[in-house]
Design a protein around this nucleic acid. Structure first.
Length: 927
RNA sequence: GCCUAGGUGGUGGAACUGGUAGACACGCAGGACUUAAAAUCCUGUUCCCGUUAAGGGAGUGCGGGUUCGAUUCCCGCCCUAGGUACCA
């Protein structure tokens, strides 16, 4: 029988599904291993060939781990709440649940074709009420928690209430809103229920408060910072403006430092760790207060260079700073007001694009320098951001380039503060010299000055050491329909949780998926949707990241109706050992997941500080578009003639995308092209060498560019095993690369050769029971070692190459020996599961048992010593590698050395006096 | 600007801690089989010189350095991709 991938692959996919082959055993002594993929949003376009890249890699690793004796959890599901389904609903009136269901079905079919070892019995969908019941439950845990800085962990809100009962706010060290009240235990007890709730809300990890948000009018919703790219929405690219709104937020800033520290122990790609570090943006410095006698208060600034405080020659406030109005003198009022008007009109984009122009306005007011007592002018300028630090900076023109430019532009003093500064052209922020013009720190170095200054400011109560973070609390509400309802109702204008027993709070039906006429979110349209028939529910829904911020727990125990996952399951599976997904989630999903994981840990639901131990970012697969060149006539109109790529420069042409499915090795199938579009039916071609050559370009895969390659088509022609191997063979997993079907025949041939190795010319299966030769064992054990090493370091492209070499060698040796092939197919099983299952069964093993066979043990004795290169030193210092010459068993050590040209050259005729051996190897040569 | 990754044949890419650069595959060229084509198999394929060959020279973005030996390590520069940006 010839290699028939179509029947063979279907057969095994059905077998695996029918037998639940990949459900991990619940009762086992095997060590556990949890392999997770970032679950997809099921979009209407279906999968293209780029989507499964990471899934194939994780599947190879999962299968490999099973062969290595692990109890592997490898689940899959759908992140099925999201904007596209809702946009579609708005346009068509179709309920998003229906669209989602259809899309999921299509995804599932496509995924099934590839032969993954997912345990589908554990599938989760974030839009399923049985699932989002627990997303709502997690929200409740966050609502019912506060962050105790002294314990450095979240605690139940009940412990905070208890502390208030005993001593009021005295001694509380919590992460909270800025505007918390101070009160005694007696005052607390005297508070009304509403007052207490209002106060507690300022401490909860999930809280409601008025905040400046990224409002996207086109999408009709607010967006988190990571959903805004360059001032426009990540989805759709619509403009985003700043707006004050009552919003649900998550107090992720409470975890800033733990999120930062936790990065150190993770086996994650360095760029990704770096991205999270930058996002958290820790800066260590100090706050300094500049008294303003007129207002009977202080302007507080944050600085990382408190040592430059004597170089302060003015203060700059953000135009939005709350004191600007009160500070501005009557003389300056007009100018200040004009400046504020001007900057507030600038969009976020303009403000960023325009970083070169210096602008600002003087308020007319002065503050007192905290140490010298001198008058310091107060300015406003839009280079100071209201949202970072205190929204005010102390300007040190000699040490900060922006302050320098500003001072030069407005003619403000520039005070040098260090004997090593050169400030004739620009600011000089170096920390090398000793201070000048700096009163009591004159002559000190940077290291000496900082602690003394901080101590002095603290003694004066005009400053203290402070750590600042760039990360903001995460906005949690979305004014959209297709998301988890927030399990909250309003009583006396204050949010209250519904009871746990009332979960899930099911998404109500609405007549339209748009905001109401009064601008309320779509959920406000739901009729008779009131808690206990009288209280309004929260109308905003949770953001897209809610459901994905804890889903790895649900896979551990997906059908449990009593808890999000049983204690037993959580204790067993612990956390994800290997997580594979794209790096685009660096500052969104991966940060929020770590946050929720830590909260759930603090509240005692599990014991893992981090959810994902090892992370791999697979690269993106781009499309490779093909072009034809239409000749234009003298009026610039398109003719019916198309010129081949190599000759196009002789004509005036315009390039048109042509469907990649009618192009083979960049040669256009001109007949198919004629039926590609009706107006091409009469097309004529100017050929080169009798062929029409297409131009190519690497672009994003998209329908409009006709460069989408559907995995189903590849599987139809070449099979799932070929697709899997080829995706891996394409290059390093982490690297982004364009899809190019051109090379796929190479791996297809490889599988066919493997098949033919077991089959005689008559097409019958045939293996020999003869004892394999030394050379045959060598081939086998080379691949065992190579593939094992490569899988462990996720170098799948090289393991595929090694497999090809091995099969070629066995073909040259005409080896069809049972002992060799049996182990070879186990090694190949993770990559090409279908063909190997078939061969395994043909060898007489129980069907399906290959998935849990033992990975063959590597035996170094089968390899000659030359395979082990090792370094050798000469006279104890020089290192060289003797791998080349040790091939011959008969060689004496002298012969070995003399056979190596490099060694000879180095020895340069000198006599070898002595060889130093350790464990039968030369490690040193003395001359 | 800053951070991170990378730059190797016609193409995708190998070379794991410095040790025969270009594995493996695609493509291309030639050959076998065939009336022919497809499929399959075999041979060759970094570039330059050498009629073939033997042989020689150059070569991993550019310029230096360390080393017996550098794609690999160090210094300076150029380019590409991703991230980030008045963050005080």
């Amino acid at each position: 029988m010839e290699y028939n991938h179509q029947s063979l692959e279907k057969k095994w996919q059905n077998f695996w599904a029918a037998n639940g082959t990949f459900e991990p055993s619940s009762n086992t002594d095997k060590p556990k291993y949890y392999v997770l993929d970032m679950f997809p949003y099921p979009s209407g376009a279906g999968l293209h060939v780029g989507h499964p890249l990471g899934y194939i890699a994780s599947d190879i690793f999962s299968r490999y781990k099973r062969l290595k004796g692990f109890n592997v959890l490898h689940p899959m599901g759908y992140d099925s709440f999201g904007l596209p389904a809702e946009q579609y609903a708005i346009q068509t009136g179709q309920h998003p649940a229906i669209t989602t269901e259809v899309n999921i079905k299509r995804y599932r079919e496509q995924l099934d074709n590839i032969g993954f070892s997912f345990d589908w019995s554990r599938e989760v969908r974030t839009s399923d009420p049985k699932y989002y019941k627990w997303t709502q439950w997690v929200f409740m845990q966050l609502f019912n928690a506060w962050y105790n800085n002294d314990a450095d962990r979240a605690e139940s809100i009940d412990t905070l209430k208890a502390l208030f009962e005993i001593s009021g706010t005295h001694g509380i060290n919590a992460v909270s809103d800025d505007n918390v009240a101070e009160f005694t235990a007696a005052q607390w007890k005297a508070f009304s229920d509403e007052q207490k709730e209002a106060e507690l809300l300022k401490y909860r990890l999930a809280y409601l408060r008025e905040s400046v948000v990224n409002w996207c009018a086109s999408l009709g919703t607010v967006l988190a910072n990571d959903e805004v790219i360059n001032g426009v929405s990540e989805r759709g690219g619509y403009p985003v403006e700043q707006k004050k709104m009552m919003q649900w937020s998550m107090r992720i800033t409470a975890y800033a430092d733990r999120l930062l520290r936790g990065l150190e122990g993770l086996d994650w790609p360095e760029p990704l760790v770096e991205m999270q570090r930058n996002w958290i943006g820790k800066s260590v410095g100090a706050t300094v207060k500049f008294p303003v006698p007129e207002l009977n208060g202080n302007i507080e600034v944050f600085t990382t260079r408190v040592d430059t405080v004597y170089g302060v020659s003015f203060i700059v406030l953000a135009p939005e700073h709350e004191w600007v109005d009160a500070l501005t003198t009557d003389d300056q009022r007009l100018e200040v007001q004009q400046y504020i008007d001007k900057t507030s009109k600038k969009s976020e984009l303009d403000r960023m694009a325009d970083t070169r122009t210096v602008s600002g306005a003087f308020t007319g007011a002065y503050a007192k320098h905290p140490l010298t007592g001198e008058k310091v002018a107060i300015w406003i300028a839009d280079y100071v951001l209201a949202g970072y630090g205190t929204g005010a900076v102390m300007a040190v023109p000699s040490g900060d380039q922006r302050d320098y430019v500003f001072a030069k532009h407005f003619g403000l003093p520039i005070i040098p503060i260090s004997d090593s500064q050169n400030i004739t052209e620009e600011a000089d922020p170096n920390k090398e010299g000793r201070y000048i013009n700096s009163d009591f720190i004159n002559g000190m170095t940077y290291r000496e000055a900082v602690p003394v200054l901080v101590a002095k400011l603290e003694a004066l109560k005009l400053g203290k050491a402070k750590v600042n973070y760039r990360m903001r609390d995460a906005i949690f509400g979305r004014q959209r329909y297709w998301g988890e309802p927030v399990p909250v109702y309003f009583k006396d204008n204050l949010p209250r949780l519904i009871k746990e027993s009332e979960l899930p709070l099911v998404l109500p039906e609405v007549n339209k998926y748009l905001p109401t006429e009064t601008g309320e979110p779509p959920l406000a349209r739901a009729e008779n949707w009131k808690y206990q028939g009288q209280f309004d529910y929260e109308w905003s829904t949770m953001p897209g990241w809610a459901g994905s911020s804890w889903y790895w727990f649900r896979y551990m125990d997906p059908t449990n109706e009593d808890v999000f996952a049983s204690k037993q399951a959580v204790d067993y599976w612990q956390s994800v050992d290997l997580y594979i997904g794209g790096s685009e989630h660096a500052t969104g999903h991966l940060l929020y997941s770590r946050f929720w994981n830590k909260v759930l840990k603090d509240l005692g639901y599990h014991e893992q500080e981090e959810p994902f131990k090892k992370l791999i970012n697979q690269g993106m697969i781009q499309g490779r578009s093909s072009f034809v060149y239409r000749v234009l006539d003298e009026q610039g109109k398109g003719t019916n003639t198309f010129v081949s790529y190599g000759l196009k420069d002789q004509y005036t042409t315009n390039a048109l995308h042509v469907d990649v499915s009618i192009v083979y090795h960049d040669i256009l199938d001109t007949e198919k092209f004629k039926s590609f579009r009706p107006d091409f039916a009469q097309a004529e071609f100017i050929l080169e060498d009798g062929k029409y050559v297409c131009g190519t370009e690497v672009e994003k895969m998209s329908k409009s560019k006709f460069n989408v390659v559907n995995p189903d088509d590849i599987i139809e022609s070449f099979g799932a095993d070929t697709l899997r191997l080829y995706e891996m063979f394409l290059g390093p997993l982490e690297q982004s690369k364009p899809w190019n079907t051109n090379g796929i025949e190479g791996v297809f041939k490889f599988l066919r050769k493997l098949w033919r190795l077991f089959h005689g010319a008559d097409g019958n299966f045939y293996v020999s029971d003869e004892e394999p030769s030394k050379a045959e064992y060598k081939s086998l054990h080379k691949i065992i070692k190579k593939v094992e090493d490569d899988i462990e370091r996720f170098s799948f492209n090289t393991s595929v190459s090694a497999s090809m070499i091995c099969v070629n060698e066995l073909i040259d040796l005409k080896c069809n020996k049972r002992k060799i092939l049996q182990e070879l197919i186990v090694v190949l099983q993770p990559f090409a599961p279908h063909i190997t299952e078939e061969l395994w069964a043909l060898l007489g093993h129980q069907p399906g048992s290959i998935s849990f066979a033992n990975y063959p043990a590597f035996n170094p004795d089968y390899l000659i010593q030359s395979e082990f290169a090792y370094p050798v030193s000469i006279n104890g210092k020089m290192k060289m590698n003797l791998s080349l010459a040790l091939d011959l068993d008969k060689s004496t050590v002298e012969e070995v050395v003399l056979a190596n040209a490099d060694v000879q050259r180095y020895l340069d005729g000198k006599n070898v006096k002595k060889f130093i051996f350790v464990q039968g190897r030369i490690i040193n040569i003395v001359v």
